[in-house]
Design a protein around this nucleic acid. Structure first.
Lengths: 138, 138
DNA sequence: TCTTTACTTGCGATTTATTCGCATTTGCAT
DNA sequence: ATGCAAATGCGAATAAATCGCAAGTAAAGA
């Protein structure tokens, strides 16, 4: 049972939305829309990709999910908003996505050249190679 | 006159490539393919968008340009690789892109949860509102 | 429980960024 | 100058994401 109450968010609690939510709760890294569709199908629920996109859009608006496009990728990924500050490292070889322990921004106040800028958030991605792929590279 | 010698990079020195290079040299922030086409056209050079993409692809391969997709955007931007460590701040309202003075990563060694990970690079984006847009928001 | 209605989804067409295919053209080494 | 591999012109093809509309459904009220 999900901790997120959709009706409380002012949106209807449909079978499709519950299913997408379930998939996102079970995912252990950000996934794209097509992957969500696959996992939804595996649960025996039939849905159209446009519905998936519409659900993801409204979830993003409501702050339930976080949408992101990784460096060098063409499609967006989605993950549940855990309301905790998280960054990822992505393997350039196998594309695996790993969570980073610490955030360097906590003790850092950046300045923008010659301009005032009001920072509301930031995105940090590390890239490189995971242990396995690094060994293969030699 | 450009400092970059295309023949030295093993690729032919065509009118089109020189023109794209010129546009990138004159740009003061990352721009997308269509914007490059516009600026090329303004210089009186006719080119197809597919040619722009092909040139950008080979420039990226050669390390002459850096391709990036900003948070929440659908299209990629391109900028000349200045071979210096740069990060940007992007205004969520007017989409202006500003350069950040410092890099917090310099004094930071991140660790990846339960895994070894060999970091070769990173990407950091700040987002928020520039002075002008912030005033409009009130 | 039954209606009503506004919100959602099914379904497919459309848009937009980007890539591909192929004939023609053009750098550039000889 | 000549020849050939590489690059471009041109347009068709892909793929991610969005849109439009009719039909279906959640949920608030009678």
């Amino acid at each position: 049972m999900s901790k997120i109450n959709l009706s409380q968010q002012g949106i209807k609690n449909t079978k499709q939305r519950k299913c997408v939510l379930e998939v996102l709760e079970e995912a252990n890294s950000p996934i794209d829309a097509m992957e969500i569709l696959n996992r939804v199908n595996e649960k025996g629920v039939k849905m159209w990709i446009s519905t998936i996109y519409r659900i993801l859009e409204i979830f993003t608006e409501k702050g339930i999910v976080i949408k992101n496009t990784f460096f060098g990728e063409e499609k967006a990924t989605y993950e549940l908003n855990k309301h905790k500050h998280t960054h990822y490292a992505r393997c350039l070889s196998c594309k695996k996505i790993l969570e980073i322990d610490l955030c360097p921004m906590e003790s850092f106040i950046p300045t923008v050249k010659d301009e005032k800028f009001y920072i509301t958030g930031h995105r940090l991605e590390m890239y490189g190679y995971c242990d396995k792929c690094n060994k293969k590279r030699g």
